[in-house]
Design a protein around this nucleic acid. Structure first.
Length: 273
DNA sequence: AGTACGCCCTGGCCGC
DNA sequence: TGCGGCCAGGGCGTAC
């Protein structure tokens, strides 16, 4: 389940591999992968001959900025993986491998996605933000506590608000639960009940947990792998996610699991208010 | 407009 | 051992 930290790890791994290199050709074999409205057939062929000018991340999206003024947008969904291979070493494509982007000297970037929730499409580079209605970057220093306070003036529960990509980009189920625990805020709280002090605490906790996630190369619950195929280590440092019934790291109260907006949600009933 | 919810997809796990 | 059914959840489309 790649969220901001996992996508950032993949981005950092791939930058030295792909930036400045020309794509020789690309084959996209799963029609579902290019299901986005307006995506022409033959996206793969359209990539041939273009050079990757930059590799950026916006929320959970990877953006390959290409010569020709367009960006290849890759959304990994739940189980999407980008895997780098050189001379056939590093990854062998299997039945769940739905795309390959071929670079010079036998290097290939594979896209593998068991559940096919992910997608790929091309957008004009300058139109990415406008087209995708994507929210603020939590790690952007320009985002202030006051901004999060204003964003949270909504009746929805704070957990759902954190997951709303049009408000805040990149936060998924794991990092939302972990950030709320570290901020001492119950996931079921109505967002608009948060005080300025709580919004500030939440932003600090969110940033800390996202940075720790990147530092430990992501959270591998089941499918997440980096570009080299290695799992992340951050799952060992989770304090609530998937720890239901286990003692809270702060007070020993058993961690509870509930549903919030159809998402499994984990929290400490003693530490979070 | 803002919020809620079903659905897409597959593998893994649980219970019988 | 086999198998049906449920669960995981990111994000879109639709309903309210």
């Amino acid at each position: 389940m790649p969220e901001l930290p996992e996508v950032e790890v993949i981005r950092r791994d791939l930058v030295p591999k792909v930036v400045g290199r020309a794509i020789e050709g690309a084959v996209l074999t799963a029609p579902r992968l290019t299901r986005r409205r307006g995506t022409p057939r033959g996206v793969g062929a359209a990539l041939a001959g273009r050079t990757v000018r930059a590799l950026r991340r916006r929320g959970k999206l990877l953006l390959f900025d290409l010569t020709g003024g367009e960006s290849l947008v890759v959304r990994l969904g739940m189980t999407g993986q980008l895997r780098w291979a050189e001379h056939g070493a590093g990854f062998r494509p299997d039945a769940h491998t739905h795309a390959q982007i071929v670079f010079p000297q036998g290097a290939v970037l594979y896209y593998r996605d068991v559940r096919k929730f992910g997608e790929m499409f091309l957008l004009p580079t300058g139109a990415v933000d406008g087209t995708l209605r994507i929210g603020r970057e939590p790690l952007d220093p320009a985002l202030r506590a006051e901004d999060l306070f204003r964003l949270s003036r909504a009746t929805t529960r704070i957990k759902s608000l954190l997951l709303d990509q049009t408000r805040l980009a990149g936060v998924g189920n794991i990092y939302a639960d972990e950030a709320l625990f570290r901020a001492g805020i119950r996931p079921t709280r109505r967002a608009r009940t948060l005080t300025r002090a709580e919004a500030a605490r939440l932003l600090r906790a969110l940033r800390a947990v996202l940075r720790a996630g990147i530092r430990h190369r992501g959270s591998s619950i089941s499918d997440y792998r980096d570009a080299a195929g290695s799992p992340g280590r951050f799952v060992r440092l989770h304090r609530v996610y998937h720890r239901q019934g286990k003692p809270c790291t702060a007070c020993r109260t058993p961690i509870r699991q509930i549903q919030v907006s159809q998402r499994s949600t984990h929290f400490c009933p003693t530490c979070q208010h």
